[in-house]
């Protein structure tokens, strides 16, 4: 699975520009699904047919955060805007790789107050050009952050764990799954980082009976970090809520009972910021009972997002169990 993750995270595909990663995922899932579709927004759908079974939409977003060039000055310096949630304090001294292969480094204007955190407007990208004419980057060109996959043994690090790790969990589950209680719509969605757009249309198109997003969640286990209980290495997290949604209590119960029955570790997750594709699925059409399987991840939206190997493997196991044990969707008093 490590090789799969490495290939996925080193394929640059920021929001709206997912072609490269879509081609890669398509190749990886082809043997494991009955049908593949690409919808109007560019979502990749892998369908595992099971005609009379309930339809489940599994969704992991394949886009990553990045930047877009907005201006090239006479000396060839490039100004840029964020694609998704890019934090200025992670940018300084960073490197980017444009989709045409050109690399660049992020520089900062001289700050009148060196203590202040510079905004992205005070930054620029230097691709080594000597003037505007020789600059190989045009307005509108898109780049991802440049950082190789890092294997720390039990922990894996990349600039795109959010959400290629969800993509990897979904691919791995499709590969290992022999049968299922569902007709499975495995969706690799676009544009999650710019407002869960892909999942919105995919959910409308599929009209699933239930939904499950697979995405990263933050942790509270770093020095003076977030105040939350999720930790790396304590198992995949079952979302109870985030800033975008309240997970459906019936789905939470299903996930917890399935994890306990299979003796798999899990954590109960409350994330007080952020959201996932799960929101878009839940709000679709006449409403969809929806939950989220989260992979705990430190330093989300930094160029070094860290996950735990066992959490990832257990997420695959839990997802496989879930797909073989359908939930009871009755409401309880």
């Amino acid at each position: 699975m490590k090789e799969l993750i490495q290939t996925l995270v080193e394929t640059n595909s920021p929001s709206g520009y997912e072609n490269a990663v879509r081609q890669l995922i398509r190749q990886k899932i082809e043997p494991w699904v009955n049908e593949i579709k690409v919808d109007a927004l560019g979502n990749l759908l892998g369908i595992r047919k099971n005609p009379n079974a309930p339809k489940i939409m599994l969704v992991a977003h394949m886009d990553e955060i990045g930047i877009m060039a907005t201006h090239v000055d006479s000396k060839g310096f490039i100004r840029f805007i964020p694609l998704g949630g890019v934090y200025p304090h992670h940018c300084v001294g960073g490197r980017v790789r444009f989709l045409n292969g050109v690399a660049g480094v992020i520089g900062v204007e001289k700050l009148s107050n060196p203590q202040e955190l510079p905004s992205l407007e005070k930054m620029f990208i230097d691709v080594g050009a000597v003037d505007a004419k020789s600059c190989p980057i045009k307005i509108g060109d898109v780049a991802a952050f440049e950082r190789p996959f890092l294997d720390l043994g039990k922990r894996w690090v990349s600039k795109a764990m959010d959400d290629r790790i969800g993509v990897a969990v979904l691919i791995e589950t499709l590969q290992s799954l022999h049968q299922s209680a569902f007709e499975i719509y495995a969706v690799f969605s676009v544009q999650e980082e710019v407002g869960v757009r892909g999942a919105t249309t995919a959910a409308f198109g599929i009209a699933p009976d239930l939904g499950l997003a697979i995405d990263v969640t933050a942790t509270g286990d770093t020095p003076k970090g977030n105040k939350m209980e999720v930790e790396l290495g304590k198992g995949p997290a079952i979302k109870i809520r985030d800033a975008g949604m309240l997970a459906d209590p019936r789905i939470i119960k299903w996930m917890i009972q399935t994890a306990e029955k299979a003796s798999l570790p899990y954590q109960r997750e409350i994330l007080e910021f952020g959201g996932t594709d799960g929101r878009a699925v839940q709000l679709s059409r006449s409403g969809v009972p929806t939950g989220v399987l989260s992979i705990p991840c430190r330093y989300v939206h930094a160029p070094s997002e860290m996950v735990d190997r066992d959490d990832v493997l257990n997420a695959v196991r839990l997802l496989t169990e879930l797909l073989n044990n359908p939930p009871n969707l009755e409401f309880s008093a």
Binding site: Q282, V288, P289
Partner: peptide, 30 residues
């Protein structure tokens, strides 16, 4: 509370059902 409204279904059954032609619960619990 939001997300956990099914506890109220029974009360609404008692208050609404006798006066109406049909009742049902939506896919998300309305």
């Amino acid at each position: 509370l939001s997300g956990y409204e099914s506890r109220l279904h029974e009360t609404l059954n008692a208050l609404w059902q006798p006066y109406l032609d049909q009742t049902s619960i939506s896919r998300v619990g309305s």
